[in-house]
């Protein structure tokens, strides 16, 4: 799944690269990974050439401890984040509500400079009130930056997969982990953002459906966003 996240982010950035087109140097992007868990995405983003920094947050101290332990296995990731050493990765134990949001003209390490890529992977389906939660998240996206998320659509296939296959048949997910009713459909996200000023103009809305194929891993499926797991990306205009 993780390599596909980068594939999707690259695709988003390629579709709406308006001003800085032909720069030879790789871009220096600032990432914010919300609900980073064990840090699999945060680590991979920090290893990329075009990354300036990765700030990864999660409110759970246990998972953050795992993430901190794991990053020590890679010399390229050790050291404090931005300005504090070699490493580009910073873990913060907090929820998104506690992180200071973007303010025009402010530069610095406290997050108020805003982020080029804000990621929200496999988080939305666990949230009780997606609307107010997304409002918090959006504050952190720089003008011209992207919010990229992945989640699962609320359809009969996903109901079957989550409640029967993953929990009962395979037993790979503890019972009650997912509440199918909380799932958000891609069409609902599109509608929600269509009503918001300053988001998703000029081709700044992207989606990609993915499906897990046993033996092959996660694969892209055209139109899959309508019935299962999907990526969704939206660009802040400016």
């Amino acid at each position: 799944m993780n390599p596909l996240r980068h594939t999707f982010i690259s695709r988003c950035r390629a579709t709406a690269n308006t001003s800085t087109t032909a720069s030879l140097e790789p871009p220096q992007l600032r990432y914010l990974d919300i609900g980073c868990g064990g840090g699999i995405f945060a680590e991979s983003a920090a290893r990329l050439k075009g990354t300036r920094s990765v700030t990864a947050i999660d409110p759970s101290p246990e998972v953050l401890r795992i993430a901190e332990e794991h990053r020590r296995r890679d010399p390229a990731l050790v050291g404090k984040g931005e300005g504090g050493g070699e490493g580009k990765l910073t873990y913060l134990g907090m929820g998104i509500e506690d992180l200071k949001g973007y303010k025009a003209g402010v530069k610095g390490a406290d997050g108020q400079e805003g982020y080029d890529i804000v990621t929200l992977f496999e988080v939305l389906e666990h949230v009780n009130a997606p609307g107010p939660f997304l409002e918090h998240v959006l504050q952190h996206v720089k003008p011209g930056g992207w919010l990229v998320l992945s989640t699962i659509a609320r359809t009969w296939t996903s109901w079957l997969v989550t409640n029967v296959v993953a929990e009962d048949v395979l037993g790979i997910v503890p019972k009650g982990t997912h509440e199918w009713a909380k799932y958000v459909n891609e069409s609902e996200l599109r509608e929600w953002f269509a009503k918001k000023q300053g988001w998703g103009g000029n081709g700044g809305v992207q989606a990609m459906g993915v499906v897990y194929v046993p033996g092959l891993g996660w694969k892209e499926v055209n139109g899959g966003e309508a019935w299962g797991n999907y990526f969704f990306g939206i660009r802040k205009e400016g």
């Binding site: 993780n2 390599p3 920090a46």
Partner: peptide, 9 residues
């Protein structure tokens, strides 16, 4: 190459 492009170890 693929691993480098996707930030994998």
């Amino acid at each position: 190459s693929h691993a480098v492009q996707t930030g994998q170890d």
